[in-house]
Structures are given as C-alpha cells and as structure tokens.
Design a protein around this nucleic acid. Structure first.
Length: 428
DNA sequence: TCCTGTTTAGAGCCGG
DNA sequence: CCGGCTCTAAACAGGA
C-alpha cells in the first residue's frame, strides 16, 4: 500500500472550488492506490476544514472513481489523523518548507501513461526567491515525506494538470498563489491555473528575481479571464482582478497595464461590450468574447493568436445570430437584443452552434480549438453542466424575466468559475 | 473624483 | 522592407 500526501496550497482569501477539490481527488485517485490527504489551507478555510465539511466534500467526490472500478480511495474517514497532526490536514503555517509551494507525490507513480509530454508544454510554476530555476529540488514536507520538484518556469500550467513524468517523479499541480503566506511581489508562490489553455511549447518563461511578465498578450489574458468566468463575461474590474490574482506581475504598475487592457478591449473586435440591464445596476459594462472569436488562438493556446479577429467576417451568419436572439451593430461592438427573439441562450451553446455550422466541432481535427485544453473543448465538456448566461446578449433591453438563472457566483457559495472544467481535469 | 471606455499615435517585434 | 500585431502612452468624454 502506497500512501501519498496531497498538499494543496491555497491563497487567502479564497476557497477551494469544487473543481479544485475534484481535481485533487480524481488525479490522485486515478494514480495512486491509496491516498491520504493533507491539505494546506488558508486560514479562511480552516473553519470549513475543522467542521468536517471539507473532508465530507472530498469524500463525496472520491466516490466517482471507485464506481469506475478504481481501487483508489481517498481516505477521509475517522481514521484520518485530526487537523494539525501528522497525516492529517495541517494549517498552512505549519508548512516548514516554504521554498516549494507545490508538493509532489511520491515517486514511482505514473500519470495516465503520458510521460511523453514535453516539459515545456505545461507544468509551470514558480519557485521562491533564492531557488534556482530549471532544477530538481528535493523537499521535505510537513510530514517528513520527501519528494522531488521539477522547477522549470514561473507559471503554473494554466490547466493545472499533472505533469506525468518529471525525472521519474509525478506531480500534482493544484496550487495557487500563496498570497497569504507571502507578501505580494516579494516571494513567489505557484500561480493558480486559470483553468484552460496549454502553455504551448516554445519559449519557456525564465524566472527573474521579481515576477516575470507572463507570456500572454493582453488579449490572451482578457480572453482567458472571460472564458474562465461562469457567465462568459466580466466587467473591466473583474478582468483586472482576475489578472492580478493569477499573475502577480500585474500587481505592479497597474495604471500602465490596465490602460492597455482597456485599450485592448476597445480596440479589438474580438471583445464585445454587453451593457447592463436596468435591474442589474453597476459600474461599467460587461465584456464578452465575440461568438466568432473562438479560433483566435491556435489550438487554444493563449500564447499567440493565430490570427486577429475582425468582426464582420462570414463566420457567423445572420441566420445564426437571429436564431439565437443575437444581433450586433456593425458600427458598434455593443450587442443588442432582439426582444422578439429574446431567449436565454447559453453562450457556450451558441459557440457550439457556430462550431458545428463551420464543421469545426471541438474534436474535429481541423478545428483550431481541438486541443484538449482549448476553450472549445472545455466548453464542450461543460455544455450540460454550465449555468446559463444570466442575461442574453442584448444590452439595455434584456428583461429580468429572461434572467431565469442568476449568476451562480451570486447564489452558490461554493461556486467557482473553474468548476466548469472538471471534466478536463478528470482526464488529467 | 475616480472609473470606464474610446481614440490616436508611436515604437518594437515578427513573419512573409 | 513592409504589413500586421502588440504594447504603451496619452488625451478626452461620460458616467457612477
């Protein structure tokens, strides 16, 4: 029987999304014979942990793999050591070894036989000051179990997937920026995966003494932010926040890059402005991705745009627009609702209508978004579980009656945008 | 006043 | 070399 310690770091404030928990459990279950979890939690999560609810959640999620015949089991019963003791969950402050934010499983574990993956294709995370990049770094966790980390870059793979083989080791990357543990901009925690988009092979970000600039363009960052949101649209401030939460680099010189973000939103046709409804007051409009902009990024890779999206292309027919209640003015990036055709349409469904129409199903070999972690793939997987858009495209004339399903982030305390990507994570 | 959004301009990089 | 893309800066207007 092999036991592994699963160490998950989480920023504060914050909570584990269902997807993150799901990912932890499933990845481990699919890999290990048995798992003993040890969660490093932010202080905000401790009450949840102490109350037993977190363990219950983990336990519940661990059932699925077992039903598929897996012998793996996530131990969460009363035999688990209590909080704070060896073998049990530990408070984040007891993590003695701070230099490694992401702890690995023990060796001799193979992840789905995908050892062939290129290191550069993912598995990005940051190491702390003083440690060297692109090295294997031994560590000892709070329970005295040693492992090896492969340090190769500054950023976590946005998918947060496992790296199947690193010098014979396996890793589980589920960590987030440990803001609660480190003063921002001074020490480096791993960066939480935004939930999609492979780090494409190519130039590997080099670690710097300070946070290195992410290899993503602003358009990529904005696209990622919007895509990862449950409603597929964000306000400007939410976009700011998402970027800063995910990439500590952008916590500095905010005026500079935020201006660029605003410029990108306004200048690029791939972003459309969704005006607020009267009964949904607030500052600023929502920004969404143009329904036809799905193939901007090659293979869903956010490092480089395949082509610049320009509105007015033939990709989206009038029939499709009208059929789903969409209409847009060629003179404006704002989208307007045709009230007579108004209906609540899940945006991802609309995307897939587009994809199907163009013979570009997510799994289609010619689909530029056919990548495992591409937006379309992810959206396809969540088609039956993603909440509907809280509003249709339609700006001012969207009636509250159409907002039949509220923004899940407003009603579900456990909602997290990343939860939509559980299927992909399960496949890790 | 601050934030949001638009627009213009210029520089740098990269690929054809 | 040229065009396209991206980034940065700045000015400006309008709204909360």
């Amino acid at each position: 029987m092999i036991y592994f310690n699963l160490l998950v770091l989480k920023p504060s404030p914050g909570w584990f999304s269902s997807t993150e928990l799901h990912r932890c459990v499933l990845c481990v279950n699919r890999t290990c014979r048995s798992v003993r979890g040890a969660l490093l939690l932010s202080p905000a999560l401790r009450p949840l942990l102490l109350s037993g609810r977190l363990w219950q959640l983990l336990s519940d999620w661990s059932e699925a793999p077992q039903q598929r015949g897996s012998r793996c089991r996530f131990r969460s019963d009363s035999r688990d050591p209590p909080f704070g003791q060896v073998g049990g969950p530990v408070p984040i402050t007891s993590c003695a070894h701070e230099s490694v934010r992401i702890q690995l499983m023990r060796s001799a574990v193979r992840m789905d036989g995908r050892e062939h993956l290129d290191r550069s294709s993912g598995f990005f995370y940051r190491e702390t000051e003083g440690s060297s990049a692109a090295t294997n770094s031994s560590y000892m966790n709070a329970h005295g179990i040693t492992g090896t980390c492969y340090m190769n870059a500054d950023y976590v793979n946005p998918v947060g997937v496992t790296n199947p083989s690193v010098s014979g080791q396996s890793s589980l990357l589920v960590a987030a920026d440990v803001a609660s543990m480190n003063p921002p901009l001074q020490s480096a925690g791993p960066v939480l995966s935004p939930g999609f988009g492979p780090i494409c092979s190519g130039p590997t970000p080099r670690r710097a003494s300070t946070y290195a600039k992410p290899p993503y363009s602003y358009i990529s960052l904005i696209s990622m932010a919007i895509q990862q949101s449950g409603t597929k649209m964000l306000t400007l401030n939410q976009i700011y926040q998402w970027i800063m939460d995910l990439f500590p680099f952008y916590r500095q010189n905010q005026q500079r890059w935020q201006n660029s973000v605003r410029h990108s939103l306004s200048f690029n046709d791939c972003f459309i402005k969704v005006t607020r409804s009267k009964d949904w007051p607030g500052k600023g409009s929502f920004w969404a991705l143009h329904p036809d902009s799905g193939d901007m990024f090659q293979n869903g890779c956010f490092l480089r745009r395949q082509k610049r999206f320009r509105s007015g292309t033939k990709a989206c027919t009038d029939a499709q627009r009208s059929g789903s209640g969409f209409s847009s003015s060629p003179q404006s990036k704002q989208v307007h609702l045709n009230p007579r055709r108004a209906e609540v349409v899940p945006l991802q469904h609309y995307h897939h209508q587009q994809a199907a129409h163009q013979n570009l199903e997510p799994n289609h070999p010619h689909c530029s978004f056919s990548h495992r972690f591409s937006i379309s793939s992810l959206m396809f997987e969540q088609q039956n579980q993603t909440p509907y858009l809280p509003v249709t495209y339609g700006g001012d004339s969207v009636s509250s009656a159409n907002r039949t399903i509220p923004d899940p982030s407003h009603t579900d305390p456990f909602y997290h945008p990343l939860q939509n990507y559980s299927r992909t994570i399960m496949d890790c």
